[in-house]
């Protein structure tokens, strides 16, 4: 399958639309590269490719740099669409086509899963942060009550002193 991976790799410009997007930081490149990696891995072990940590890292990095989940999924969708068309044109062997489509489906599902789990993680962090904020609010309210009592006392004392 390494040969198939190479043949898919030459479709990079077409699938990632480098003419339009330039050749740096291409949207959806992480998905395409994951497909190529997985095709190469299939050739090595003829078994299951396992979890692609590189894809996981690439998506997590995009999200961390401020890309939205929608943008990541949208780019993956675009790459998938272009890959399907490119494969249909470039590969004659039906088995090769099926292998690439199946690999791409795997990668796309993995990407969706990573995005979903990252949203879950973020929701968890938001919940924790909210709890912390609510705790802080409680302390602040207590402090405010104490301050207001002190303020009232001081104002009364100053008033009593006639100044």
């Amino acid at each position: 399958m390494t040969e198939l991976a190479d043949r898919i790799n030459v479709l990079r410009d077409e699938v990632l639309d480098t003419v339009e997007q330039g050749d740096r930081d291409l949207p959806g490149a992480e998905v395409f590269e994951a497909v190529v990696r997985q095709l190469a891995a299939l050739g090595d072990s003829s078994g299951h490719a396992g979890i692609d940590l590189t894809l996981h890292d690439a998506i997590a990095r995009r999200l961390a740099w401020g890309d939205t989940e929608e943008a990541v999924l949208g780019d993956a969708d675009r790459v998938f669409e272009r890959l399907v068309k490119a494969v249909q044109r470039a590969l004659r062997d039906p088995d090769d086509q099926i292998a690439v489509l199946e690999t791409a489906s795997d990668v796309l599902t993995a990407a969706a899963r990573i995005v979903a789990l990252s949203a879950v993680g973020r929701a968890g962090r938001d919940r924790s942060a909210r709890l912390r904020e609510e705790l802080a609010q409680r302390r602040l309210r207590e402090a405010l009550t104490e301050q207001q009592t002190t303020l009232a006392r001081l104002e009364q004392e100053l008033k009593d002193s006639g100044l």
Partner: peptide, 29 residues
């Protein structure tokens, strides 16, 4: 297989979208 891949991808992406959507109110809150 192509039809199936498209359907599977659509379904996965939609489910991811639902998760993202469900996480939004927490962020707003």
């Amino acid at each position: 297989v192509r039809q199936l891949a498209s359907a599977s991808h659509g379904l996965a992406a939609s489910m991811a979208g639902l998760v993202v959507e469900a996480a939004q109110p927490g962020a707003h809150k």
